[in-house]
Nucleic acid binder design. Structure first.
Length: 349
DNA sequence: AAGTCACGCAACCGCCTGAAT
DNA sequence: CATTCAGGCGGTTGCGTGACT
């Protein structure tokens, strides 16, 4: 596929798409001599291009270690996770995906992943739920489905790195869910509904609240910012108070919302874990993990764990999140919450 | 069959950073 | 310390292509 304007001349230098012949010259030269100074390369190699153009062509297309073709599911999840932490630092993201270039990842994000997150009701910039047009109630099925992400592992054993990526994704999804709860609770009108949703006989709400400051500090310390928004102390206090009040009133307060039930996601791998209903949902969650065979992880797509845990970049973030997951936000803990949410009748006043 | 539209992606542009002088 | 310059990065552009009418 061609890009940009057809070959135009500027300062006598060719621009636009590279011809196979130019590619050959560039590859041959670098194979023989290395690239050395990019500025000097074109004249030395006999190319009528600027050095910058040569560098770009080499790094984005001709380099022998470049992996072409579709992104694997694990790569896709990795990009989403890394973007939540790093933002549009494409080169930093690319450093965790061997064989992928920043340009390729950037394009993939802009053309696929951005839309996918938007469809899920997640703001692709902040990775927060989009409360502008999707309120908490509407986006909950997606969040619940996403929160069950890690259950996939039971059905599709992957290599260890893929597991790690999936776990990161699950953490993100759960934090989204948690933050959404907080947002809902901050709004007095929806407090009861949300608490009814997440509460139940075995819901350990106070444990959740106890950990909010820790979640806050982990995110802040390890990322320098709060990708999901902060849990400020007064929010925690308010939540604890709300929760205590709710517990007291919960037994008698069980109105139903029969109109709002969760929807089967027939085409989603989450389907088995998501409560079903006959009512169509306001929004559909696209599958984060493709079920198509050609997207199954392959040997060559396995990501080097050493790359992922590059200590100079974001490993501390993942480690911290991992700690969080291992501890309070462990899967069984969240599964309890989610199971409760799934089985609990919905309430609206 | 022809025209239109939306999308994907290679390539360019301009800014930033860090090393060299 | 100030300046210059090469390399790197993120954002943007615009052509080719396939889907749709």
């Amino acid at each position: 596929m061609m890009g940009r304007s057809p070959s135009s001349e500027d300062n006598g230098l060719k621009k636009g798409p590279w011809t196979p012949e130019e590619d050959r010259i560039l590859v041959d030269y670098i194979r023989e001599n290395g690239h050395g100074s990019w500025r000097a390369l074109p004249s030395l190699a006999g190319l009528n291009r600027c050095g910058k153009s040569c560098r770009l062509r080499w790094t984005n297309y001709l380099r022998p270690d470049i992996k072409r073709g579709k992104f694997s599911d694990e790569e896709e999840q990795s990009i989403i996770n890394l973007h939540a932490v790093l933002g549009n630092k494409w080169s930093a993201i690319a450093s965790h995906l061997p064989g992928r270039t920043d340009n390729e990842i950037k394009n993939f994000w802009n053309t696929h992943l951005r839309k996918k997150l938007l469809q899920m009701g997640i703001d692709p910039v902040t990775h927060k739920p989009r409360t502008d047009h999707l309120d908490f109630l509407a986006s909950l099925p997606q969040l619940l489905a996403a929160a069950n992400f890690s259950n996939l592992m039971n059905n599709h054993p992957l290599d260890i790195n893929a597991l790690r990526l999936q776990s990161d994704a699950a953490t993100l999804a759960k934090l989204h869910l948690l933050h959404n709860m907080l947002q809902a609770l901050g709004n007095s009108a929806s407090t009861i509904e949300a608490m009814n949703l997440i509460s139940g006989p075995t819901f350990r709400g106070n444990q959740l609240f106890d950990e909010l400051p820790r979640i806050n500090s982990l995110l802040e310390v390890n990322t320098g910012n709060l990708p999901f928004g902060s849990f400020v102390p007064h929010e925690v206090t308010k939540l604890q108070s709300n929760f205590i009040n709710l517990e007291a009133s919960q037994q008698q307060h069980q109105p139903l919302l029969s109109e709002y039930q969760q929807q089967p996601m027939k085409d989603s791998p989450f389907a088995a874990n998501v409560p079903t209903s006959s009512t169509p949902p306001p929004h559909q969650l696209p599958a984060l993990i493709s079920t198509s065979p050609e997207r199954r992880p392959s040997v060559e797509n396995k990501i080097n764990p050493n790359e992922i845990s590059n200590p100079s970049s974001t490993s501390t973030n993942f480690e911290a999140w991992g700690d969080l997951m291992d501890d309070v936000a462990s899967d069984h803990y969240w599964r309890d919450i989610i199971d409760q949410a799934s089985s609990q009748p919905w309430t609206i006043s």
